[in-house]
């Protein structure tokens, strides 16, 4: 009985310490931010209830987009090597093959209308400022035309499997122009020196971000970087919830590749120790019976 009392005192003291040092201290250092919003409700320039026409979208894309963007899925190959593209635009322009799948419809439509406000980069590209965003705003286009483009891009986007290969495709399309993933042998398509000039800082390698930032942080950050780091050069990416989950899944598959093994082995080791402790208890009782 006395031993249980001692144990209770210990558990309370250690419990208070743990709570204060870990969950509490971290909640003070990293306050909660607004929950992720995957509808991108703040963007209202384009009425996305308009029904788009894919055939017209195809014509518009071929007339307006492929001068800069590759769409390998439908045969529009990249026009110049990455280094030249980065030199021309600041950053390599994205291949649009997956755009209709990974980007939210509302985000994509409003992005075409005005990229800077959709990306939340007004602080970097103020109206009338020295720097201009590489892609022009298509705010002169009719809402119908914009929705036609969106529907077309959605129609050509290939489906990917929900596995490591599929997750890697999504990651490359969503993050791979600026971020490397050294442990996954992925290198940013924009050369490092061009990136530094374009972004102001070298975007971090993401190999260990699943550990250093954690899933919870990434969930908010990818959805809207500005809520966590005000003024960051990282744009709001506009991923759908599913595409964002695929990106995070890939980061975990690369950054914490032994998670499954850890959790399986963990249960076996703990099970072993429970049996060990029970046997040790029986042995202890047998021995102490003789001295008490």
């Amino acid at each position: 009985m006395k031993e249980f009392k001692i144990l209770a005192v210990l558990v309370v003291l250690v419990g208070v310490l743990y709570y204060g040092i870990e969950p509490y201290a971290h909640s003070v250092m990293h306050p909660e931010v607004a929950p992720a919003n995957f509808n991108f409700d703040d963007l209202k320039n384009v009425d996305t209830s308009i029904k788009g026409n894919g055939a017209n979208g195809k014509v518009l894309v071929e007339a307006n987009c492929i001068a800069c963007h590759a769409i390998e899925k439908v045969g529009h190959l990249q026009l110049m090597p990455n280094a030249d593209a980065a030199a021309a635009y600041g950053v390599t322009p994205p291949d649009l093959s997956h755009a209709g799948r990974i980007y939210d419809k509302n985000f994509l439509a409003n992005f075409i209308f005005d990229p800077v406000s959709a990306l939340h980069l007004e602080h970097k590209y103020p109206v009338g400022g020295a720097k201009t965003f590489p892609m022009p705003a298509y705010n002169w286009m009719s809402q119908q035309d914009i929705m036609d483009i969106v529907v077309y891009l959605q129609s050509i986007a290939p489906k990917v499997l929900d596995d490591k290969v599929g997750h890697a495709i999504t990651f490359k399309a969503a993050c791979g122009r600026c971020h490397s993933m050294k442990y996954g042998t992925l290198e940013a398509t924009t050369p490092a020196d061009a990136l530094k000039t374009y972004m102001g800082v070298t975007p971090p390698d993401l190999s260990q971000h699943i550990k250093s930032r954690g899933e919870h942080y990434l969930h908010s950050f990818i959805n809207n970087p500005q809520v966590l780091i005000k003024g960051t050069a990282m744009p709001r990416v506009g991923l759908t919830e599913k595409a964002q989950e695929e990106v995070i899944a890939y980061m975990e598959e690369i950054g914490d590749s032994k998670k499954e093994e850890r959790e399986t082995v963990g249960l076996w080791v703990m099970g072993y120790m429970v049996v060990f402790a029970l046997l040790a208890y029986l042995w202890k009782r047998q021995i102490w019976k003789k001295v008490h």
């Binding site: 120790m273 429970v274 046997l279 040790a280 208890y281 202890k284 021995i287 102490w288």
Partner: peptide, 23 residues
């Protein structure tokens, strides 16, 4: 005698320890 008790305490402690290690 002394170690039999310690080994039992050690067993309980290691369950806790390995919980922390893995999870």
């Amino acid at each position: 005698v002394f170690l039999s008790k310690d080994i039992f305490v050690l067993g309980v402690f290691l369950v806790f320890f390995f919980y922390l290690v893995f999870f």
